[in-house]
Design a protein around this nucleic acid. Structure first.
Lengths: 257, 257
DNA sequence: AAGGACAGATAACCTAGGTTAAGTGATGGC
DNA sequence: GCCATCACTTAACCTAGGTTATCTGTCCTT
């Protein structure tokens, strides 16, 4: 293979959490397939499909959703570049959600059975996988709080600020303007609201100078202001890799405040 | 130690998913502490506490929740006997939720650093842990759908039927009457509703012969009827352990349809 | 036995957000 | 260049569920 570790989606992703040593990098590299290009609106998989792989999202955006019997839809996650898609379907033989691409995208696929090689060969990676899935859960928990106990204004602001944080991975980016490829329908389906009410709320935010709306895009102008509307606290995004097996000498926590 | 494997909370729990061989049983047994008795309304931990262990719930019920700034509360999980509590806090140094006991209870604690021993020693257990956390996520996903896109009637019915399934672990139990130690406040906080509206909805269900309400208890009389109200589909609870490492000969899927 | 705390019940009234419908662009296929 | 589609906008009206308040019963506590 002519690939360099730097080309690998999943190595990049893991490196953003912690140091991955050469051996582990080679292991990951040997297991992933891709990268591969996909176009906007492509369906990555549908509920009921055989569940035998997951993906890393190198470029572009995606979301997972569930179609309801009555024709409505609940968006469950929005995935941003660097995210792993489908890890939570690990326990199921068939997909329990569908995934669609919100933009043109580049993905790598990763056959699930290769997880065994990871578990068997690298405690670091095993811990890391566990940490990533636990962080996903924390995001889901926060979304539950959002849907259960906040107003439409707060829901929308919270959702947008969370995305800003996830895109930045540090607070640095949170000060800048940020463009998100999200339609009002996607927002409505993610937040359990109607697109009409999303529109009303976006109008308000726009008049308050918090953001601009465009064609299939949202530009965040004042993320701090949105965070205040939402009462946003980023604690649930601030994971840290836990105990490091003794045999490995690297510290894993330096870049994660 | 005089403990027998049969006394172990976590072995029982894992056995309900798949076969655990003797070596793995000994490993688990050596790592857990307990069992220990707790009384109703005890706080297992609070948001912000140091996060260094998880628990198995041998007897009794518990729930995790988040307190909101405005004094309201969002219940995030209800835990029933056999559940693992706190696995999802794995990625965090401090607790991101609080946990309170809904009844008197018996728990075993499990220091988190011992997970490394598990990951290092047993592929079976490593896979199993992954499966359990993934199943937890599936339950969260379904709760998101519940909060986002269903009416109060559907939310309540869905929540109750899910608990019935989790208590039964098979459809067998779903035909019988079932008593749940849940107050109307807990239900309200779990479903993003008010206790007043929970009360109204429970009155309706009672008049339809679907359940009885009592003092801090709910008796489900017609689970099939509730499932119809909710449009309930149990697919998201039906996990199965995936590929089995070659070195172990046991089949893991027989008891999981 | 009195008092307090809490689960539950119920009624009157209110509002956040849903529903329906009728627009206006912009985009893209042919 | 025309037509269809789709994102978005806006307005009029409606309802599911929230709010507030009062009342009951039960269980602890002392």
């Amino acid at each position: 293979m002519s690939e360099q570790p730097a080309d690998s989606c999943i190595i990049k992703h893991f490196q953003s959490y912690t140091n991955i040593d050469d051996k582990d990098q080679q292991l990951l590299l040997s297991l992933e397939k891709g990268p591969q290009e996909w176009s906007k609106n492509a369906i990555l998989w549908q509920q009921g499909d055989k569940s035998d792989s997951f993906f890393t999202l190198n470029k572009g955006w995606a979301c997972s959703f569930r179609d309801m019997e009555d024709g409505s839809r609940q968006v469950l996650d929005v995935f941003v570049p660097g995210d792993i898609i489908g890890l939570r379907e690990f326990a199921f033989q068939t997909r329990i959600t569908s995934v669609v691409l919100l933009t043109d995208a580049v993905l790598c696929s990763f056959p699930r059975q290769h997880l065994d090689s990871i578990f068997a060969s690298s405690l670091t990676l095993c811990n890391l996988m566990f940490m990533i899935i636990a962080r996903d859960q924390a995001i889901l928990l926060e979304r539950l709080v959002n849907l259960g106990r906040r107003t439409a204004r707060e829901k929308l602001a919270h959702f947008l600020v969370e995305l800003a944080h996830r895109l930045g991975r540090t607070n640095a980016l949170v000060e800048k303007h940020l463009s998100l490829p999200l339609t009002q329908n996607i927002l409505a389906d993610a937040l359990g609201l109607t697109s009409v009410h999303i529109n009303r709320t976006l109008q308000d935010f726009r008049q308050e100078g918090l953001l601009n709306t465009g064609n299939c895009h949202l530009e965040l102008l004042n993320i701090k202001g949105l965070a205040e509307v939402a009462g946003f606290d980023a604690f649930y995004l601030e994971t840290s890799v836990f105990s490091q097996p003794a045999k490995s000498g690297c510290s894993m926590q330096e870049e994660l405040s």
